[in-house]
Amino acid sequence: MPYDESDVLVYDSRRAPEAPDKHLRATSEAAWVRRSLIGIAVAFMLLVLVLPLALVFTEAFKKGFGVFLESLADRHALAAIRLTLLVAAIAVPLNLVFGVAAAWAIAKFEFKGKAFLTTLIDLPFSVSPVVSGLVYVLLFGAQGLLGPWLQANNIEIIFAVPGIVLATVFVTFPFVARELIPLMQAQGSGDEEAALSLGASGWQAFWRVTLPNIKWGLLYGVLLCNARAMGEFGAVAVVSGHIRGKTTTMPLHIEILYNEYNFAAAFAVASLLAMLALVTLVIKAVLEFRFGEELAATRRH
């Protein structure tokens, strides 16, 4: 929808501007309405969002920094941290490759059944994490479909690390794809076609043209994928068997500690994950602030 440039210096008539004289805008609410709404919104957010977060850190350090460190240095805690990192280190790259491949196929080509593919990709978001774990138990568990075969060959999936990795991969694979697909769709194939016409091979076009274009979306997708991979609880709980020291990830370890009423330790480990969440949010905010406009501009036609 073209609009006249005549007053582009004065205001952009298509977006609600930050009115310099707030109360003089012809189309804004009375001051008391504004203040009440802000008050309600802020109060709600503080209550629902900030308070739990604050509690995590308060409880973690309640008994002092010494206890905090002890909880983390505990041998089971360390094992849990190691396992969590290991699982993330496997799941995230796998999902990264998948996300890029799926986004490439979906964004650059027209094919039948595309809608089906994208629905599949969205599936983990609608499925309970417990169900996500359950399907693997039903497949690889002792009474599962492949159970006998696995036992015969001495392969352990359920109640072992591979199972945890699988379940985590299931739950987190959409993140990278979901970031990249709209982004690449909005960017179109023009750049790649130009590269090809200049003699680049498919790979070169991807590395030199596509990748730089999508790097921020990719980074953000990876961040989310990682945060979720390290924090996944329900699916892993089903698949892991809760064997302390061997198949407990950090979230499971937190559960065990909490159920033992060992609150300080539980919140200590929890605070690590909470800090990871905060870092993710901060990076997201920074990315959005600096590159959101760019990305949004490519999304609008």
């Binding site: 006249d4 440039e5 005549s6 007053d7 582009v8 210096l9 004065v10 004289d21 003089l24 012809a26 189309t27």
Partner: peptide, 20 residues
Amino acid sequence: LGPSGSGKTTLLRLIAGLET
């Protein structure tokens, strides 16, 4: 009538009361 930045739309909006 005028080019970009001449203020014509601003004047119109002032008459309408959309700006003061």
